[in-house]
Simulated scan of single mutants.
Amino acid sequence: MSMYQKGFVIPVRWAITIVALLLLGVLLAMSIIMTDKSFLDNDGPVWVFASGVASGLVVTLAQFFLSWADAKAIDRFRAMGVENVLSNRDEEAYYGKFIQSARTQVDVMGSTATRLMQDFADVESPKPEKKALIEALRKGVEVRILVATPERLEARERIYKYPVARKLFESIAAQYPNFEVRYFDATPIAAFVRADHQLVVGPLLPGVESKHTPALHVYNHSPYAASYLNYFEKTWTSATPVSQMPPLEATA
């Protein structure tokens, strides 16, 4: 499967212009068809078209040109592959639907991925949305999780979050061969979740809970997404599989 998928994007302002011109063409054609007058006669097609459309057209064009700058801004975001901007990452429902949309691939990168595992890999929960990651694994989706070694974590994360996530990782890896976790030896600076050809990514700030930081939902063909995905692949090749990590007792 190709990591990057490009799509044909029509700028919003040109899409509006094309639709407007098509509608005008349809109205003109109807004016011609629905009268037996000559084209330029009084009450003819041109007169009917102008009198019926002119006033509304003036107002519509005025509104359109006033919104031209906004349309250009939207086009710039679309050109960068931006689907949405999240003011924070404390969006369990959003991420749940995002993971559920995956058909072939889920990649995760972060510091410990504890919150993601507790939110979407809770096998004991009676709520289906709390098992989104488990359901993806059952459907054959390949899941890769890349997180930092405990030595690269802040004290609180190393003491409390790392052991919790590690136990969840090992339990699920024992049940699903399409679930793989590796640890990279570097300070984590960003976190993302990839579902097929889309990515939700945001920064990791020292001393700040990741759920309180913003994130971008982008498509993989975006240059913004490509840098993170390339970094993931490069780091993944040299990272240590969870099965080769020291026992939890050695890092306690």
Rank of each mutant, 00 (worst) to 15 (best):
Phe49Lys: 01
Pro45Asn: 02
Val85Ser: 04
Val48Glu: 00
Ala113Phe: 05
Ser51Ala: 04
Phe77Tyr: 14
Ser111Phe: 03
Tyr95Phe: 13
Leu61Asp: 12
Met109Gln: 07
Ala73Thr: 03
Ala79His: 15
Asn88Ala: 08
Leu61Lys: 07
Lys97Asn: 15
Ala62Gln: 10
Arg103Trp: 13
Ala121Pro: 03
Arg103Met: 02
Asp75Cys: 03
Ile74Asp: 06
Glu124Asn: 10
Phe64Thr: 04
Tyr94Phe: 13
Ser101Trp: 02
Phe98Pro: 01
Phe49Glu: 00
Ala73Gly: 06
Val106Ala: 03
Met109Asp: 01
Met109Arg: 08
Asp119Thr: 15
Asp75Lys: 13
Glu91Gln: 10
Gly56His: 06
Val123Asn: 15
Trp47Pro: 02
Ser111Arg: 08
Val58Ile: 11
Met109Ser: 04
Gly52Met: 10
Ile99Phe: 07
Phe64Gly: 06
Ala93Ser: 15
Tyr94His: 07
Met109Asn: 01
Leu57Asp: 01
Ser125Glu: 09
Arg76Ser: 04
Gln105Asp: 10
Ser87Cys: 15
Leu61Met: 09
Lys127Cys: 13
Gly56Leu: 05
Pro45Thr: 00
Arg115Thr: 13
Phe65Tyr: 09
Ala79Glu: 09
Ala62Ile: 14
Phe98Ser: 01
Ser51Cys: 03
Lys97Cys: 00
Glu124Gly: 06
Lys72Pro: 05
Trp47His: 03
Ser55Asn: 13
Gln105Ser: 12
Ala69Cys: 10
Arg76His: 08
Glu83Pro: 00
Ala50Lys: 10
Thr104Val: 10
Val82Glu: 08
Asn84Ile: 06
Val85Met: 05
Val123His: 14
Leu57Val: 05
Val82Asn: 00
Pro126Ile: 02
Ile74Tyr: 01
Asp43Trp: 09
Tyr94Gly: 07
Pro126Gln: 11
Glu83Ser: 08
Val59Cys: 06
Thr114Leu: 03
Arg103Val: 07
Ala79Asp: 13
Asp75Thr: 14
Phe49Ala: 05
Thr104Trp: 11
Tyr95Ala: 04
Gly96Gln: 09
Ala71Asp: 07
Ala69Ile: 12
Gln105Leu: 12
Ala71Gly: 05
Asn42Ser: 14
Phe64Asn: 09
Met109Ile: 15
Val53Glu: 00
Asp41Pro: 03
Arg89His: 08
Asp70Thr: 13
Met109Val: 06
Ser67Phe: 13
Gly96Lys: 02
Asn84His: 09
Ser67Lys: 11
Glu91Pro: 06
Ser55Thr: 05
Phe98Cys: 02
Val59Gln: 07
Gly96Val: 00
Trp68Met: 11
Thr104Gly: 10
Tyr95Leu: 15
Ala54His: 14
Asn84Phe: 09
Lys97Glu: 08
Val59Ala: 05
Met109Leu: 13
Asp70Leu: 14
Gly110Met: 02
Ser101His: 14
Ala73Pro: 11
Leu116Ala: 08
Met80Phe: 12
Phe120Asn: 02
Ala62Pro: 01
Ser125Ile: 14
Phe65Thr: 13
Ile74Asn: 01
Phe98Leu: 12
Ala121Val: 00
Ala54Gln: 11
Met117Ser: 01
Glu83Val: 04
Asp43Thr: 02
Thr114Ile: 08
Ala69Lys: 11
Thr112Val: 07
Val58Met: 04
Gly81Pro: 03
Thr112Asp: 03
Gln105His: 12
Ser67Tyr: 07
Val82Ser: 04
Arg89Gln: 06
Arg78Lys: 12
